[in-house]
Design a protein around this nucleic acid. Structure first.
Lengths: 191, 191
DNA sequence: AAGAATAGCGACCGATCGGTCGGACTCTAT
DNA sequence: ATAGAGTCCGACCGATCGGTCGCTATTCTT
């Protein structure tokens, strides 16, 4: 996962990975069979890490807006801390494979969809509870949240500006609170 | 550029490109010298295309907020029309090379910086003219605009949802108008 | 203790990678 | 007429790619 996040899923070559692990190529291939299977396994495992780093810290918080805030905070922290040295593996991978076919792209689609569904559910719940305007477009909000995280990932990885995390925090705060009726005070940390 | 936008700057192999062009490998390398020079030339040329597609259509509009709106509209259209078949070449390339060193990454950084400066200048102008709140953080706004475009690029390329362009339009409208004093009516197309 | 998986090895495969080299051809400036 | 620059070619280079094969050593099961 570390190699793939830096060099890309395609740059994760069998020979190099085997050398890094101190085993032979055939010894490595014996476990996965093909490179494609290795790539899929890498993504599956990365999903577990992502879940542990982003979802689980927020799972304890009550569903709806509070959990949404917690998830976004954990998400930003996950990017800020550089859990994967080359940035979020899913972000890297989606831009690497979005133009190709095959099982890797299919898996990426499923994973992104699942994540978006999770977020959408909390958005809808927050709207139903009155923490967000009741006409909130969940898809729209998730679309914009994802954009904030991609921009943050880009800023950290290309420009090395870890401090941009505060930008992401501000953007999230506005997205999750700015649609409240005017005069309402966001419950999160005000910018 | 077309090949690189789909396969990545690294997947733009000399042999394949030569075959696509109907010339020999050495004939192609005679023009560029090395693969890295070919990659740099690809990015330089893509910047010309991007400028033509996104900046020039808006250049005629007066500077400040109007031009900002025009640029964003052209930007969204550029992604929606699929000027590069694999999505924005700069978005693909930045996530491919952000974790590596070398001249390609350096060039990408320069190009992104230049683009952000251009946008920031219009944001500051808009703020000075009162079209945006005078305490507008230009860097913050550009950060969020970039995120919207990345999310749009992702949605179109991975999920094939060209209709997500309306999401981007809504997000941009809110970013460029939502910070106005309450009650003010955005001058753009209201959602 | 016998047998079956499992894990790992080194050697090897054809293909492709980026890149070099010497030569042939064309065009232009002198 | 000729020299030089530019363009392109086919042949070739070592390295690396993903992957296969036959073999051995270990471990687990019965």
């Amino acid at each position: 996962m570390d190699v793939a996040s830096v060099e890309g899923l395609e740059g994760l070559t069998i020979g190099r990975l085997a050398a890094d692990l101190g085993i032979s190529k055939s010894g490595l291939l014996g476990h996965f069979g093909t490179k494609e299977a290795l790539q899929l396994a890498t993504l599956e495992r990365a999903a577990v890490i992502f879940d542990r780093e982003v979802w689980r810290p927020a799972a304890a918080v009550g569903p709806g807006l509070p959990r949404l805030r917690a998830v976004c905070a954990a998400w930003i922290s996950y990017l800020e801390r550089g859990v994967f040295p080359g940035g979020c593996l899913f972000v890297s991978s989606t831009f690497e494979y979005d133009g190709r076919g095959g099982p890797v792209r299919v898996l990426l689609r499923r994973q992104f969809r699942a994540w978006q569904r999770r977020l959408s559910a909390d958005v809808r719940l927050a709207a139903a509870e009155g923490d967000l305007p009741e006409d909130t477009d969940a898809g729209q909000l998730v679309f914009e949240l994802l954009g904030v995280m991609m921009s943050l990932n880009h800023t950290i990885q290309l420009h090395g500006e870890t401090a941009a995390a505060t930008r992401a925090v501000r953007a999230v705060d506005r997205l999750l609170a700015g649609q409240l009726p005017v005069g309402a005070v966001p419950s999160g940390n005000p910018a």
